[in-house]
């Protein structure tokens, strides 16, 4: 068997997939027939103008919001299926299991202000996953070390800069060992001089083949780190493909969007 045949026969597994998603808020149709999928170890960036529905898409993917129509699965397991033309969510017990597959990093961190940095990271593994405390704490310290925050374990979130808080939030998400990690504009709430430290952490996760879906306004970052890019506009996927394909496209809406963000 040639090595070429060998590589092509290793099928990358689809970790996350959503198809034909529709969502309206009242009369406002925010998502109109959106489909995306992410394969094992891939980074998918979602870009697009404000109000195009990117956050709504992530909120549906992470089940903070329900969809009106469509199906969705993690690791091949259906969280939502279309039955008789209607979307049906899996039973609560099953959904609870499926939810263990993903994590979400919020734009404004949403750390727990009354917990120390260490407890922010360890509490869910200990009290939700019922894992051993010493083991979890050791892992958390290792995560903090990777984030360059080992000296902040006993600090409270309010004592940290935005960039540090976001790195703690990433560590908190990673501590649960998700298969897919979603980010909603992880650097948008940060001062420009602090975005770099957070992007660096995400980049190193990409190098370790963490499967990620990242909504971002950082075009250079998206171009450099992504395996695939989706350009959303007015609730539809206007373009998708490799970074070269999407950023090099002469699609009019894309060119117009790039013109706006680069200024």
């Amino acid at each position: 068997m040639s090595s070429e045949a060998n590589t092509s026969s290793i099928q990358q597994r689809v970790y996350f997939e959503m198809n034909n998603i529709k969502k309206s808020f009242g009369d406002l149709q925010v998502l109109n027939d959106i489909s995306i999928s992410v394969q094992e170890g891939d980074v998918l960036s979602i870009i697009g103008p404000s109000g195009s529905g990117k956050s709504t898409l992530l909120r549906i993917a992470t089940m903070l919001e329900t969809m009106d129509y469509g199906d969705m699965s993690y690791m091949g397991e259906k969280a939502v299926s279309v039955v008789d033309g209607k979307s049906v969510y899996a039973k609560p017990a099953r959904l609870k299991e499926i939810k263990k597959n993903f994590g979400l990093v919020f734009q404004n961190f949403n750390l727990f202000p009354h917990y120390t940095v260490l407890k922010n990271i360890t509490d869910a593994p200990i009290s939700v996953q019922k894992r051993d405390k010493t083991e979890v704490e050791a892992e958390a310290m290792e995560l903090l070390r990777k984030m360059g925050l080992e000296d902040k374990a006993d600090a409270y979130p309010s004592q940290l800069s935005g960039g540090q808080q976001q790195r703690v939030a990433i560590a908190r998400a990673l501590a649960l060992k998700p298969n897919v990690l979603f980010f909603d504009e992880p650097t948008s709430a940060l001062d420009p001089e602090l975005t770099g430290e957070v992007l660096k952490v995400i980049k190193s996760l990409a190098e370790q083949h963490m499967t990620m879906v990242i909504v971002t306004h950082e075009m250079n970052f998206a171009k450099n780190i992504s395996d695939r890019v989706v350009f959303m506009d007015k609730g539809v996927v206007a373009l998708s493909g490799s970074p070269e394909e999407v950023f090099g496209s002469d699609n009019e809406r894309m060119r117009e969007f790039l013109g706006k963000v680069s200024h």
Partner: peptide
Amino acid sequence: KGQYEAGQILGYSKVQ
């Protein structure tokens, strides 16, 4: 609201 959502994403039950 973000505090509830963070709890939900991390897998805490409503009571927790």
